[in-house]
Computed example of a mutant assay.
Amino acid sequence: MPHATQLPGITQKYGDWRDDLFQNGYAIIKNAVPASRAAEYVESMTQWLEKFPLGFDRNDPSTWTEEHLPAHMKGGMYHSYSISHENFVWSARLEPGLLSAFSQIWGTDELLVSFDGINITLPLPKSQRKKSGRWPHQDQNSLIRGFQCAQGILNLAPNGPEDGGLVVLAKSHLLNDEFFRMHSTGKNPAWGKVPDDWHGFSEEEVDWFKERGCEEVKLCAEAGDLIVWDSRTVHFNVLPEGDNVRAVIYTCYTPAALATPEDLQKKKEIFERRERTTHWPHRNFWRADEILRLGKKDPYSRDRPFEEPVLSEKLLKLAGAMPYNKEGPVEK
């Protein structure tokens, strides 16, 4: 049985967006980051794409194709190239609105953050658009019960019904225990190499949730909104059908107290190597295979960010590189 820590009860009413999170499995926190700051992050993401000598031109949609972009997944998910530790990504993780939201969820300011990536999905010319394959899943081990991880998306550009984005099965987290009493907890070999804290669902299993009242909802948000969801909530991504760019930074936080000393040491080493983790900030530090670009090893692969993060005490504590019971000068 995987390690899990019993968390405090969450049955109380809060009178705010947390009620949506615990009752529906997701919530949208409006204006978590000012719209002007969101625009700055979109600019930083676009400049990051331009640093690769692949012919990408922000003003020419004909270059928004795979051969002109760094290696990515599912239309616009970037995890390689040490993107998890670019200075602008760390700046987003330190936004007061994000830290406040997750502090409210967990009842503590002593948090760890995941070393997640970004998503900048550029709508292709209509003649080249394809329907995206669905991969409904939860980001929690099928053997772990209860609320253990909250995921987040900092939404940086207006995102409507026809734009690429997150789809959830509302209230599916409430049926998690029942589902795994009736279905296998094992991993399907067809999923390939996936983290322990990832479990996929077939379309028939998605129907099982729908038959019990779970509605499929495409989440829409404005620039600067924060989307949070219970990791047990069944969810997946969709590609844009409209002409808007999707731009988000994945941000997940959990209490530092949930991490074992051994996991904190691993997290510190991962940070120092500027590598990525799963969505879980405090455990299961899984090393993914290298993402190939156009089916080949990428000559532009890199293991350090273009712009290193500006180290601070708060950053190092969120990274697990400095314990919360220690204060002192930041090592350069």
Rank of each mutant, 00 (worst) to 15 (best):
E331S: 10
F115P: 00
H235M: 10
H79M: 10
H183Q: 03
K30Q: 14
S312F: 08
E215T: 13
T251K: 13
N237E: 14
L169Q: 04
W229V: 10
G295C: 13
E308A: 15
S44R: 15
N87G: 06
F88T: 03
P189V: 12
H173Y: 09
E43L: 11
D177N: 03
T260N: 02
C214V: 02
P158M: 15
K130V: 14
N244L: 00
S231I: 00
L315H: 06
L124V: 08
K268D: 12
F236L: 09
F306S: 05
N141K: 00
V89N: 09
K297I: 07
S184H: 01
W48T: 07
L7K: 01
T108Q: 03
E205G: 07
K130I: 14
Q265I: 00
L174D: 03
S36N: 06
R18G: 08
N188E: 03
P305H: 06
G152L: 06
Q12V: 06
M1R: 09
C149L: 07
L154D: 01
Y14D: 10
F22K: 02
V113S: 05
V310T: 13
P323L: 07
Q6I: 07
T185F: 01
I144P: 00
P8I: 03
G97S: 07
L294P: 11
K210V: 08
K332I: 11
P34I: 02
N284K: 02
P123Y: 09
E95M: 07
V194L: 10
M182I: 00
W280M: 05
E86M: 04
Y250E: 02
S312M: 10
D243K: 07
D20T: 10
T260A: 01
S44T: 15
K326N: 11
D298C: 06
D196S: 05
D225I: 13
P309C: 05
K210I: 12
R212Q: 04
S142W: 00
F115A: 02
L94T: 02
K193M: 09
T251L: 14
G186T: 13
H72T: 08
S100Q: 09
I227G: 03
S103R: 03
E331G: 10
C220R: 12
